[in-house]
Nucleic acid binder design. Structure first.
Lengths: 335, 335
DNA sequence: CTGAAAGCGCTTACAG
DNA sequence: CTGAAAGCGCTTACAG
């Protein structure tokens, strides 16, 4: 290790006590101006940087938060992460990230490890069982959830209104005459996936139904799941998210299907790519920045010991683009 | 703050000294088996987790590294980050990320802040001036560079062989008969951009030339820069990276140009999307995982006090896909 | 093999 | 307003 400049060095250089240096550097007003200037100058001369660990140990606050995401490669999560990083930086906090790889065991481990070195945790779309989540939050360690709701867990949270958005997506397809539809699911462990299913169920109110095939929230998975979806001879495929939709579309094209002429495809999230690919994607706009902001605001509130902010249900408006069109083929209900 | 279980609590519970608890938990063999079992059991009963900051302070090693990237939203960087996270996790290290937003001032600040709480730093495609980089590494703080080379800075590094890859891309276009080509640049501060330009310059050996227009490594920037490129009436556009290429292609399509029939487009990086969009992208495959691995290995070496690993120049093979084709239009040299 | 003690670099009551 | 001192939770020589 490089020998670091310590607060003691600065104190000596400035000819004051370390307590005074500490006060100056933490902006406490109770120090006379001459000393403040001396200390600042000395710190500058020496290139002093406070040791964050020592500061954390002594004060009990590390000014670091942990963020656990299922997959750093998914732009949906990176956009949320980016938003959290930007917001928390504004308040002087840094971010320790962990990528669980979508594995529930690893996710729990990551949270446990992170807890030892951060002031609070934001879990993005956690997939761990409700019991684990409950255990994790039992001791009151500051935690905020994004896109996860669990009965009897009263953690602050930011939720995308997935259910309503899915219902809208169904309504859109229904309006185009689609009655043979396949929903290509995401992880069964994901709250969002459950909400999508509820939205689809809600759509029964106007006679909408969809068969379900398994999937995962990746391009690759969408690509692979296409054939299973085609077994139902659908006129439309609702992909779990935009990535999966892009994969499905790539595969459909290979096989010779035109989107949306032969088959309509919807995504979810509105990642940047969704507007630039061809066909552009009909999808639901998840407000990633707002999810991140709300989560950070909620966590900051807890860290400050202030009353928790109410959970926020953030709308996800549907945008209709090129990937959906009228159902042209003869519609026969899925058996 | 939640009252945490400390090593003292475990010691009391197990009826041993804290030194012994520490030894057991750090896997030191010099403890008798009965005590080891007692301590493990006590720690388990109490749900003890060592405080990382305290451990770091006492031992001088935090087991945390910092990674600074220009843009978390660029999959190229996320793939590298993901690789670093995965590799370093295997060695018990965690990752503190910082997104500089491509701003050189912020990049330097991020490095300085990070240095106070990490054991080492990996800078991914840093754009700061050479002098800042030199100042940062002057005191021997463990640092590794990805995609940045600077005269008189002898830091371990992992470099993508951008120059050769660019040359190959030029050769490919040249072979297809393209003589009116525009290079849509990335950030002028980026080493990769300079290397691309050198590769293009190298291509003069076979009579290849390209006009240069300004750009940035984003979809949006590619989209916007398309018209400036079109002013040259090129038969091919070499975009700085895949994101920019996707943006250009989207814009060309809007205007009515077919890719590659009217204009060929190349990217760089081979992000996952490059294989799934239409047309699929001709690009250079940056081995992101290997860049991350090499960087971590190099940093770990330094952290262990072992002799530094040589810089590695990682090849970036060109893959030809659908976005490039023969130059059909009459070719007149760019003035 | 085990424990008492010093020390890592800070913050923060506590005196003065 | 300022400083001496205790303490944050650990690790690690140093004795024994």
């Amino acid at each position: 290790m490089v020998r670091q400049v310590t607060i003691g060095d600065v104190a000596k250089e400035a000819g004051v006590s370390i307590a005074t240096v500490s006060r100056v550097l933490n902006g406490q007003s109770t120090v006379n101006q001459a000393m403040v200037d001396d200390v600042r100058a000395a710190a500058g001369r020496l290139g002093y940087r406070p040791n964050a660990a020592a500061r954390g140990l002594a004060s009990g606050a590390y000014r670091v938060i942990g963020v656990v995401v299922p997959d750093l490669r998914n732009p949906y999560f990176t956009d949320i992460l980016e938003s959290i990083v930007a917001q928390s930086k504004g308040d002087g906090y840094r971010v320790l990230v962990s990528d669980s790889g979508g594995d529930v065991k690893e996710e729990l481990d990551a949270c446990r490890r992170l807890r030892t070195s951060v002031d609070g945790l934001i879990l993005v779309s956690p997939r761990m069982p409700g019991d684990d989540l409950r255990a994790l939050s039992a001791d009151g360690f500051p935690m905020v959830l994004i896109n996860r709701q669990e009965p009897s867990i009263a953690l602050p949270m930011a939720l995308a209104d997935t259910r309503s958005a899915t219902l809208e997506l169904c309504r859109h397809l229904s309006g185009l005459g689609h009655s043979r539809v396949v929903y290509m699911a995401g992880s069964a462990l994901s709250w969002q996936n459950r909400e999508r299913l509820r939205g689809i169920h809600d759509a029964r109110e106007f006679g909408f139904e969809a068969a379900v095939v398994e999937g995962e929230p990746t391009i690759e998975a969408g690509y692979r799941a296409a054939s299973a979806a085609l077994d139902f001879e659908p006129t439309a495929i609702m992909a779990y998210n935009d990535l999966a939709a892009l994969g499905v579309i790539a595969r459909l094209r290979e096989i010779g299907f035109k989107v949306p002429n032969d088959i309509s495809v919807t995504g979810f999230d509105d990642i940047e790519m969704a507007r630039y690919v061809r066909p552009t994607l009909t999808t639901a706009v998840s407000l990633k920045t707002q999810l991140g902001e709300h989560a950070w605001n909620a966590l900051r509130q807890v860290l400050r010991g202030q009353p928790p902010i109410a959970a926020s249900l953030i709308p996800s408006p549907v945008v209709v683009r090129e990937s959906t069109g009228p159902a042209l083929r003869e519609a026969t209900p899925i058996s």
